[in-house]
Each structure stands twice: as C-alpha cells, then as structure tokens.
C-alpha cells in the first residue's frame, strides 16, 4: 500500500536524521540513561524513607520512573506537529503540502508518526534494553495487562498529536510558539504524571488533573503498565482517553478549517 511505503520512507528519514550526528545520538542515549538512573535513585530513596506512602511496591514505583523516561522520548511535546506546522508556515513551504491531494493534518500525522517510530527504534528500544538489564524493573504482570498498556499507549500518542496540532495552529496566529510552548510545557510537566504520579497530589489538584487530557499522556499508560490500575477501572480510563481523542481531533479539524481559509486568503 502506498501509505505504508510513504510511512517507511518517513521512518527511514527519521532514523537517518537522528543517527547522522553520532555524537549527538550518543549524548542523547547518555541523557536518557542518566535520567532513568536518577529516577531510580530518587524513588528508591523516597521509598525507603516512607514505604507506606506508596500505593505500590518499590519495584513497581521504580518501574514507573524508568518506563516514564522511555515513554518521554516517544510522547514528545518539545518537537513534533506544532513545530512542523510553524516551520512550514514561516518558510512558506506549506504551499507544497497544501497542493498535495492529502488532508493536511493527516500529512502532518504521518510525518510525525514516522519520526516518532524512528525515535522509538533508535532511542527508546536501546534504552529499554539497557534499563531491563541494569535496573531492577519489571514487565507488565500479565499478557492482557501488557495489551491494555499498548492500547493506552497508542491512545496517548493520539492525544499528544491532537494537543500538539492545536498548539501549532494557535501558534499560526502568533507566528511564534515561544509563550504558548512555555505554558504547554508547564501544564504537561505538572499534570501528566510523567514525573510525580498523580496519586501523590493533594485531592484538589488530583481532581483538576483528572478532568484534563494531560494525564492520559503518561499517568494512564504507566498506571496500567505497573498494574496500579486493574480490571474494571482500566475500561473507564481507556474510555476517558478515547473521549479526549475524539474531542481533540474534532478540534484539530475545526482549527484546520479556520486556518486553511485564512491561509488561502492571505497566501501564506
């Protein structure tokens, strides 16, 4: 199929870009590894000081931390659709994308998916390998749990795409992403559970986080992975992810209609 071929092309391109500068690539891996070790030490130290404060075991907590770092290279908000959109608009090359008979958001999606998969292959996979060998972390308890994790991860990616796209389209009006990127980064750091799992939050903050899409990025898949979410509650959480996907993608479609018409009128 043509789409698969194109996707393979994007992936290959992504891999090439990421590994061309060998030193940059090596440093990337270094950083990922250091971060995993840092989380491992942090959670171990905290666990030893107050094991009762955790709703999970030490192994599970450390796993949460390590896997969060790995996912962080894949669920990325520092680069992706929004930067692609802004760069294309600034350079004026968005016209070539528009001329193609493919829905623009879908073009962006396939391109970014290619890069993310390249990321997965070049960074996440080696990091995971090293982590499992070196650190005392675990895999999902059962195969079903693992499958639920995979499903929620796919949904996380879609939520991320929707959010990044929206940020990109908002950036279109300001022609710069700086301010909004800061706020976006802050929100994700605070509410996604990438660093501090939501079960530590004071109840009011936890309630706020439950209502927003950000926890679907990290907290949801990670909780499923380590088994903190089981059985019935999984269904509910997965459903909330799906709801957000629908909302965000509708938002993207709408935003694109508006932006597209403005683009056509102004000529970029």
């Amino acid at each position: 199929m043509k789409i698969l071929r194109v996707m393979r092309g994007f992936i290959r391109q992504g891999i090439q870009v990421k590994t061309t500068y060998g030193m940059a690539y090596a440093m990337r891996l270094v950083n990922v590894f250091v971060k995993m070790v840092a989380f491992y030490v942090l959670w171990s130290v905290l666990y030893e000081s107050a094991p009762g404060a955790f709703p999970v075991s030490q192994v599970e907590m450390v796993t949460y931390g390590a896997v969060s770092v790995m996912l962080g290279e894949f669920i990325q908000w520092w680069d992706g659709p929004h930067f692609y959109i802004i760069t294309q608009i600034r350079r004026g090359t968005i016209t070539s994308d528009l001329v193609r008979p493919v829905y623009f958001p879908f073009q962006v999606f396939s391109r970014c998916l290619g890069e993310s998969l390249a990321e997965f292959i070049t960074v996440v996979f080696p990091a995971a390998l090293v982590a499992y060998l070196v650190l005392p972390i675990s895999l999902p308890a059962t195969l079903t749990q693992g499958l639920y994790f995979a499903l929620s991860l796919v949904q996380s990616y879609l939520i991320l795409f929707g959010l990044n796209c929206l940020v990109g389209f908002i950036g279109f009006y300001t022609l710069s992403l700086r301010g909004i990127q800061h706020a976006y980064h802050g929100l994700i750091m605070l509410l996604s559970g990438a660093w501090v799992p939501l079960w530590f939050f004071p109840s009011w903050l936890r309630q706020v986080a439950e209502v927003l899409p950000f926890r679907g990025l990290f907290f949801t898949p990670l909780s499923i992975y380590i088994g903190e979410l089981q059985g019935q509650s999984i269904a509910g959480t997965l459903l909330s992810q799906t709801v957000w996907i629908v909302i965000l993608l509708l938002g993207v479609g709408l935003a694109w209609r508006v932006v597209h018409s403005r683009l056509v009128v102004q000529g970029g």
Partner: peptide
C-alpha cells in the same frame, strides 16, 4: 513558570515525604 512548576512538583513530593 517552568521553574515554579518544578518547585511545585517537588513540593507535592515533599508534602508526603517531608524530606529527600
């Protein structure tokens, strides 16, 4: 903003753990 968020998260942790 970003440094504040960092410190808030540290604060959330330290609320539970009193010390690192």
């Amino acid at each position: 903003l970003l440094n504040l968020v960092d410190l808030v998260l540290l604060g959330v942790l330290l609320q539970r753990f009193t010390a690192i």
